[in-house]
Nucleic acid binder design. Structure first.
Length: 870
RNA sequence: GGGUGAUUAGCUCAGUUGGCUAGAGCACUUCUCUUACAAAGAAGGGGUCACUGGUUCGAGUCCAGUAUCACCCACCA
């Protein structure tokens, strides 16, 4: 056996290990042998415009852990990777790049060229990101990797548009939408953020027609009054009841507009009277529609006042506001201005203030009569067809669907798939043709001059179909793997993505897209802040991997966190897992250094010789059972924690130390074999590396997951822990009395328990060696100074002439007696309680009785001890 | 305005059908370079599980309310 380095160096082996996995072909499901059942996770496609960040790494780790677990459990496993073209975001990123590097705007290079260049940019980024994904260790099938703009993927997505249009779920209409003046496009509701901003509330007096009276309205945006077509009050508002039905003269515009009543008006806000601007406010637009009010668009798509704004035409909204306020003051129509904070809508991507506008856009009717997307989704979720982790997100999602409004899917950007919609020069915009291919003639007038709709799709329209557009690249994959098993995503994508996938999939395939939906929380920095460029607190996954190894990164991302909960990442934390990988490495190094060591899959009864052997095999079996359970309930961080405790405390500190005295190489090989397998999903690199060093030819990645023996008796497994606690007690005494490690001590045991005696005798060598004991005596009379402790049913005495501090010993004993008495009192009271005895499960009662008996023995011994000290 | 989550050791957090004299890692104290590992080993200190009630034989765990923090949603003109 060649000399192995003392310290595990992931940097030197990870790339090579990944290359072996890839070369083996086992990332592709069809190459896996003896499979039963399928497992599929379509990986969320990251935006192909940058690089991986720690959030991606977090999700990928979770997916890979589940994927590797499934593969080792004999499932035909497919993790399908991909990239997203990410419409608006990529356009924003690439426009900046274009400006910075070439000083050009997209308009200057033109739509076609811009598209080509952006495409090339995305492909380039995708290649780079793929190399990052491999570094993390994702066992994905790269031969199936997809891009949202791949022709086959896109075709499936666009076919959905055609079908939805045929089914009447798509309509084009002039409605109020969120307009980003910087991006120059409409946005859906979820792409708009709200920010609390200080502002002013202007109280403006509107003169009532043919009267000297006024009605005062309050607004934060006085400039929109140019487009007012009504003033509304609540029908229950007694203050204004008599004014309903009358008209007011709209100041500055001098038009006559009505006073209407609408129950959506809040009596308590402002003056209770609201100016209605249907063209520039969502609520006003709805009220306007219901009351058949005119829509006057006075702000254009560049945030400038239109011709309809009279003398203010051409001003920016900001300039117009100042002018209007001045003019109102001159007319003595401005009653007052109050300071207030209100929430302002901003663009999710570029943070520009959103301008609500009426505009002609394409929408999906999410609540159509023949197929209500939202109702179908709610139904599926309520029926638990999709299990959501954490479970409480179910309610949040249902509430969101309940309130979902029609989905605006058209964007006026250049980057993204264009609508498969055509217009004929003769027939105009009203009579459009929906068709994947460009029609040769207009079906209405046979005209031949056809142009394509310039709109591009909302990114979420294509990524919302990702679960099946990817699989449909190979029809057989779709049949085999759909619906998929697991979907993992960040909680920030709850509304953006999970919701859309559920709706779109139910519509197109009639089935849910995935059976399990697992949300990861946000990864935050040490102080709980989000990672951001402006804060400069980013942690680059590759830097971490270079410094600590991919396994350490993976562990630090999934530990200390429950589904949907945020977690914090910082170097000290990553370091502890680097240390763990090194511990496992050294455990293995020790095992490998043993003479006839090899990994063993099975052991027989004859291989179990000592208390320690029995204990470790029983505990290992129990560990496997618990790990399986935890995997099933998706509690991977708890599972990893359990594995860690077993590996470090039970195996390394307990078993291996004992095994040094009573050798059993076969047992070492057995436990290590199982541990490498159990650990593999979490820390695939170091486990695969050790596996190979141990002489295995097949890859650990496709080895069989350890079997749990359900009916295994574990009666004797508590004997060895008793030996360990005996050891600990002796060491504690040594420590307390400052006995140098070279000095041997005697151990006098007093016990009536034959079993305890037997267990101690059986493990005498181990106790002697590891606790520095020269001789063990049973039930003999000891004369002279000694320290006494109680362990289980034994009193142990350690003769120490001149070292015993009687006062200290007394104090210690008294304190312990008080503790025990308190516990015994409580326990006895419980057992004396008829209700407890009749209602608690048998197991709890017997356990309670057992503990009580033990503690009573201890107490009696301690009291004897105390008496002897008097 | 509505909702969700959090509140457990100095710090970061686990604790999923209620059975716990409440756990881990880091940090801390003391000792040890003992032939797998100082990125380690050994021993130890540290918590009325935010608060108030309730249900229960039994509550960190379930219910109701309160407080603080965080996040999300919203058509607050």
């Amino acid at each position: 056996m060649k000399e192995l380095p003392k310290i595990y160096e992931p940097q030197k082996v990870e790339n090579e290990i990944y290359a072996r996995w890839e070369k083996s072909g086992f990332f592709a499901p069809e190459n896996l042998k003896n499979t039963s059942g399928n497992y599929c996770n379509i990986l969320p496609p990251p935006n192909a415009n940058g690089e991986l960040h720690i959030g991606h790494a977090s999700g990928y780790t979770v997916m890979d852990i589940f994927g590797r677990y499934a593969r080792m459990n004999g499932k035909k496993t497919l993790l399908l990777p991909g990239k997203d073209h990410a419409g608006i975001q990529t356009q924003v990123v690439f426009e900046k790049k274009l400006q910075a590097e070439l000083g050009l705007s997209r308009q200057e290079i033109g739509r076609e060229d811009f598209y080509k260049k952006t495409y090339a940019f995305c492909i380039d980024r995708a290649n780079y990101m793929r190399s990052q994904e491999k570094k993390i260790g994702i066992s994905a099938d790269w031969s199936r990797e997809k891009f949202t703009l791949d022709p086959d993927v896109l075709k499936t997505a666009l076919e959905t548009f055609v079908k939805m249009h045929e089914d009447g779920l798509i309509y084009k209409g002039k409605r109020i939408i969120n307009w980003c003046p910087r991006c120059g496009t409409a946005l859906s509701d979820v792409e708009v953020l709200h920010k609390e901003t200080p502002g002013k509330l202007y109280f403006i007096k509107y003169p009532i027609e043919n009267s000297n009276e006024f009605i005062t309205v309050a607004t934060t945006r006085p400039e929109t009054m140019l487009g007012d077509t009504a003033v509304a009050v609540n029908p229950k508002d007694k203050r204004y009841l008599k004014l309903v039905g009358k008209n007011v003269v709209l100041p500055l515009q001098n038009t006559i507009i009505p006073i209407i009543a609408d129950k959506r008006i809040d009596l308590s806000f402002g003056t209770g009277a609201v100016k209605i601007t249907p063209s520039h406010d969502p609520l006003d637009w709805e009220i306007g529609k219901d009351h058949k009010l005119d829509e006057i668009q006075i702000i254009d798509e560049k945030s400038l006042i239109t011709e309809l704004g009279g003398k203010y035409a051409g001003l920016t909204t900001h300039e117009a506001r100042e002018e209007i306020v001045k003019d109102l003051e001159k007319l003595n129509l401005l009653e007052k201005i109050e300071e207030m904070t209100h929430s302002v809508s901003i663009c999710e991507r570029c943070k520009t203030i959103i301008e609500p506008l009426t505009s002609s856009q394409w929408f999906i009717n999410v609540d159509a009569k023949n197929f209500s997307l939202k109702k179908k989704a709610i139904e599926a979720i309520k029926k638990n067809e999709i299990e959501i982790f954490p479970n409480n997100f179910q309610k949040i999602l249902i509430d969101w669907f309940d309130n979902m409004r029609d989905w605006c899917i058209s964007r006026q950007i250049w980057w993204g798939p264009q609508f498969p919609v055509w217009y004929c020069e003769n027939c105009g915009q009203e009579k459009y043709i929906v068709s994947l291919e460009k029609p040769t003639t207009c079906p209405h007038c046979q005209g031949k001059k056809l142009t394509r709709d310039e709109n591009t799709f909302d990114t979420w329209f294509t990524s919302g179909q990702w679960a099946y557009t990817t699989l449909k690249s190979k029809e057989k994959d779709f049949e085999t793997f759909y619906p998929t098993n697991t979907m993992v995503m960040g909680r920030d994508l709850l509304f953006f993505w999970s919701s859309r996938m559920i709706m779109m999939s139910l519509y197109t395939t009639g089935k849910i897209p995935f059976k399990n939906l697992f949300f990861t929380g946000l990864v935050l920095d040490k102080d709980g802040h989000k990672f951001s460029k402006s804060r400069g607190n980013g942690i680059d996954p590759l830097t971490v991997i270079e410094k600590f190894g991919a396994d350490a990164l993976r562990m630090s991302l999934i530990m200390d966190s429950a589904p949907g909960q945020n977690s914090r990442l910082y170097e000290e934390k990553i370091e502890t897992f680097r240390n763990f990988a090194n511990k496992l490495w050294n455990i293995s190094r020790y095992c490998l250094s043993q003479e006839n060591f090899k990994l063993v899959e099975e052991i027989s009864k004859e291989d179990i010789n000592s208390e320690a052997d029995r204990w470790i095999t029983d505990s290992l079996n129990e560990l496997i059972g618990k790990t399986n359970q935890l995997f099933e309930s998706k509690q991977i961080s708890v599972a990893a924690d359990l594995l860690k405790t077993f590996t470090w405390n039970s195996f390394a500190d307990g078993y291996i130390e004992a095994q040094k005295i009573e050798k059993n190489d076969k047992m070492l090989g057995y436990v290590l074999d199982k541990l490498l397998k159990l650990w593999h999903p979490f820390i695939p690199f170091v486990t695969e590396h050790i596996w190979t060093l141990a002489g295995e030819k097949e890859l650990l990645m496709i080895s069989e997951w350890p079997a749990y023996e359900e009916n295994k008796q574990a009666k004797t497994s508590s004997y060895f822990p008793f030996v360990l606690s005996l050891n600990k007690t002796i060491r504690n005494v040594r420590k307390e009395k400052n006995i140098e490690s070279a000095k041997k001590i005697e151990l006098w045991v007093e016990t009536t328990s034959e079993l305890s005696k037997k267990v101690i005798s059986n493990n005498a060598d181990f106790i002697k060696k590891s606790a520095g004991v020269s001789v063990i005596k049973f039930n003999e009379i000891l004369i002279g100074d000694f320290i006494q402790r109680v362990v289980g049913e034994c009193i142990i005495k350690i003769p120490l002439d001149g070292l015993v501090d009687v006062e200290k010993e007394k104090n210690k004993a008294e304190k312990e007696i008080a503790n025990l008495e308190k516990f015994i009192a409580g326990s006895a009271a419980r057992l004396g309680n008829k209700e407890f005895v009749s209602k608690a499960p048998e197991q709890v009662i017997s356990q309670q009785k057992e503990t009580l008996a033990k503690k009573q023995v201890e107490l009696a011994e301690l009291k004897k001890h105390l008496a002897s000290l008097q």
